[in-house]
């Protein structure tokens, strides 16, 4: 059994307990739950309306700790694009959900760095495990998430760790403009992505 987007300190504890019993459970967390808190809802801006909802700073801290210690196996985006008329309304009428595919890696790097995982020797292997190897294993994908070693399919991403960038919803390839990170400056950009050796992204643009 796999648990989608765990979002509270209590649910991290429950997953930790279940794993300690030896049960076959796995769990995922979203980038936004690793970074944003319910204080943002005070703006009544529906871009921050999501299910499960944004939680408290204590929950964010517990989720980060759970991701680092392996209680939480994977990051999963819950990328949820919405048409403008469904999202840019009064709070109660707005659809739940946020986009996330284009910001996920940078947000996870930012969250882990804030949590003190800033040594590259710890950070990058952790990201490779939680955003590639383990989600591939949970999804039963034998051709994805493999180590970068001879014989593996050339599914890989090249990241410029020094390139900070500011999120502009108008620039997104997704039709959804509902990113909660609009205007934020995030670390690290994807320079290139290769799918079985074929570039899908080069120089940060569609190949």
């Amino acid at each position: 059994m796999h648990f989608c987007h765990v979002s509270t300190a209590g649910s991290v504890e429950l997953v930790r307990w279940a794993k300690s019993k030896g049960w076959n459970v796995t769990a995922e967390v979203t980038p936004h739950h690793l970074f944003l808190t319910d204080d943002l809802v005070a703006s009544y801006d529906p871009v921050f309306k999501v299910n499960p909802p944004l939680r408290t700073a204590d929950d964010v801290e517990a989720l980060r700790a759970g991701l680092v210690d392996g209680t939480i196996d994977a990051v999963a985006t819950d990328h949820a694009p919405h048409a403008l008329e469904d999202k840019e309304t009064e709070w109660a009428a707005a659809a739940f959900g946020m986009t996330g595919l284009e910001t996920a890696l940078a947000v996870v790097i930012a969250a882990l760095t804030e949590h003190g995982v800033d040594d590259p020797a710890a950070l990058w292997p952790l990201i490779a495990d939680r955003m590639s190897a383990r989600p591939a294993a949970i999804g039963r994908l034998s051709h994805q998430g493999q180590p970068l070693a001879a014989g593996a399919p050339a599914n890989l991403v090249l990241v410029d760790a020094a390139a900070a960038w500011t999120v502009d919803p108008a620039q997104s390839a997704s039709r959804g403009r509902n990113t909660p990170f609009a205007g934020r400056t995030l670390p690290a950009r994807v320079t290139a992505t290769f799918l079985r050796g074929r570039p899908t992204v080069l120089d940060g643009k569609p190949a």
Binding site: H2, A76, L101, P135, I138, Q146
Partner: peptide, 19 residues
């Protein structure tokens, strides 16, 4: 040839939850 000087290489990311 691709000049990837200093770029971090990771296995391609896998998302378990996309709409």
């Amino acid at each position: 040839s691709f000049d990837a000087d200093g770029l971090i290489a990771l296995p391609g990311l896998v998302d378990l939850h996309t709409h």
